[in-house]
Design a protein around this nucleic acid. Structure first.
Lengths: 354, 354
DNA sequence: GGAAGATCCGCAAACGCTTCCAGGAATCCG
DNA sequence: CGGATTCCTGGAAGCGTTTGCGGATCTTCC
């Protein structure tokens, strides 16, 4: 453990060579007022020549902020989180903030993170990407004592940026309804924190859209999978299997994510049926995979949500007011996986159609 | 910019309450020798009760290390980098090191990173993920004055972990040869730093495999794309278009990555041909997409390379010797995109196909 | 039982920077 | 031209740790 920079240049060196006191050198380099322009220029010259960089530890210790932001994210290898992180990183870098990354995948890691709070005393703010913080977690998190921003999920407690899940769900299900589908299934992600009375999620949009279309609810057409698994594709495939096995299978499926939708497509095809002729499938996210596989979806601006979260952090650190919640718009992206239902092959159970 | 932790508990508080000096408290908490067991226990008790956490800035300033590692990565939303980062993160976290993330995507960002070296004085080590550092970049990087590890790419200058690209290429091309293909194309990624005389890459493996099989080289069967674009799929699609347009198209294609391969598959299908019946396609990586789309590939353990890089960093920081280069094994994954060539339909120029 | 040695602990000096406070120089006004 | 501002600058006090050094206490052995 040698000293990181053996030939470190310190502020004192700069000051000495520039012929000023460390105090003045510090002020000059921090662009404080009340420093003569000539002096400021001279100090900067020397600092540049010597490739001086301030010791962040000393700087922070003497009273400043850490210049660091903790980002807590459940996954890294999934596109959604990577893209959001990318947007966030670009804004933070722009603002000169460093990004401390904490991944909290499975329950155990997550628990450990909130128990030990490794980011304590190390950052000026915390950004939670893509998952909702529970009540207990919230209480612990607040012990860090810094600003907190949530992105990609709703949060009652902290400023957050996200899509309007209800609107997104409506876009998807309304699209299927408009195509003429009546037996519309849903592959839903289980949301532990969901308030059943609070009509805001993708699931509630599904029910509302069906109700508006005068379609009776059918519990056998809803399959719920647990969130948190590494890949949603297999879960989607499995869920679709259950739906196809029903006595009266759906003609269209609304999946809560593109990954689930792709799994569903795979199962449909393996069952010898065709997409979209026999079954229409639509997802949410506009994952790059969706474009590649010609999947209809409801796109959300993921990168941009990361950027907005970054701006919220920066504003908060500047002491400016930040919005409680920013909703970014989603857009329906119609590709080749959705089409009107085939009227032939409609069995007795679909007589309502006729 | 309020103080991050208003009610911060300091070492002095712990010391006072435990009835010892700060010096002893520090030694007790750092598990130094020459502290009475009873004292040590008492200090720990108090520290735990008060939820004391050391100020990393002060600790570092007084002579320790930063406890941070910089990770430089070109992309975040692509699976390869995310997966590698995930492996790296898990090891660093285990070792109690914090991960400072720097993304350097396009040339401008990359240039800026190596010019300004934002990680300077902030970290104990630097990990470069998934790209080769140029000579000039290397010189600048060394000004940080800390250990450097490269993962997912070869590096003559630093300890590195990667796959054996030549072996991987052989696995892919030999597979195609064994299936009976003779007209085998390659969609290659342009490697600016490649030494033409140094026979180590995927491209050289292609040529070697063909030569071993007694197949004459045909320059029209090799298409090179530039690296660095966000998505390789479109490039692969375009490259495949060029190959199909040749007077004598290939019956099999070896793509340097799964993303390129998927683009190639798309073009083949859009041309009305079938995979693998008309054209076999194989990639490299074993991207999750490959499993989903039934693409044959040469899999590499990405997550594990991240872990190994992490262990190299940890060893280095402990002052232990680290290996110069670790090669991780690849494995041929045969799926549905490769098959023997069709002997019928082998026209002299394949015009019959169109 | 006394001295050498081992143990344990506290004092105080860094570490590199920021910022309060006050002093000296330059500028301005009447 | 004297005194009051205004500008700039330097001295010095921290910020919260770690650690070298020496002193105090306790063993242990002859």
């Amino acid at each position: 453990m040698l000293p990181p920079v053996p030939t470190a240049v310190n502020l004192a060196d700069v000051a000495r060579i520039a012929g000023v006191s460390p105090a003045t050198a510090s002020r000059a380099l921090s662009d404080h007022p009340h420093v003569a322009a000539a002096t400021r220029a001279r100090v900067w010259r020397v600092a540049t020549d010597l490739e001086y960089v301030v010791s962040p530890e000393a700087s922070r210790l003497a009273g400043g902020s850490t210049g660091r932001v903790a980002v807590v994210v459940p996954h890294l290898s999934r596109w959604f989180f990577g893209a959001m992180l990318e947007g966030l990183e670009s804004v933070l870098r722009e603002a000169g903030l460093d990004l401390l990354l904490y991944r909290v995948g499975e329950a155990a890691e997550r628990q450990a993170f909130f128990d030990e709070l490794p980011a304590r005393r190390k950052v000026d703010a915390v950004v939670v990407l893509g998952f909702a913080v529970g009540d207990d977690e919230r209480r612990r998190l607040e012990r860090i004592g810094v600003d907190i921003v949530v992105a990609g999920e709703q949060s009652a407690s902290y400023p957050s940026v996200r899509i309007d899940d209800h609107a997104a769900g409506r876009q998807a299900v309304d699209h299927l309804v408009h195509l003429g589908h009546r037996r519309i299934a849903m592959i839903a992600v289980h949301d532990p924190g969901a308030d059943p009375a609070h009509p805001a999620g993708r699931s509630s949009a599904y029910h509302a859209a069906l109700a508006d279309a005068g379609i009776a609810a059918d519990a056998t057409l809803v399959v719920t999978v647990d969130r948190g698994a590494e890949q949603g594709v297999d879960q989607g495939a499995e869920a679709m299997g259950a739906l196809l096995g029903a006595t009266s299978p759906p003609t269209a499926v609304f999946a809560h994510s593109d990954e689930l939708a792709l799994g569903a497509v795979r199962t449909v095809r393996r069952a010898g049926l065709r997409v979209p002729e026999d079954v229409s499938v639509i997802g949410v996210d506009d994952h790059p995979l969706a474009a590649l596989t010609d999947l209809s979806t409801v796109g959300q601006p993921v990168h941009e949500q990361g950027e907005i979260a970054g701006r919220m952090v920066v504003s908060g650190l500047r002491g400016e007011a930040v919005e409680r919640v920013v909703l970014v718009p989603t857009r329906l992206v119609i590709r080749g996986s959705t089409a009107p239902p085939r009227r032939s092959r409609r069995g007795a159970t679909r007589r309502a159609d006729v």
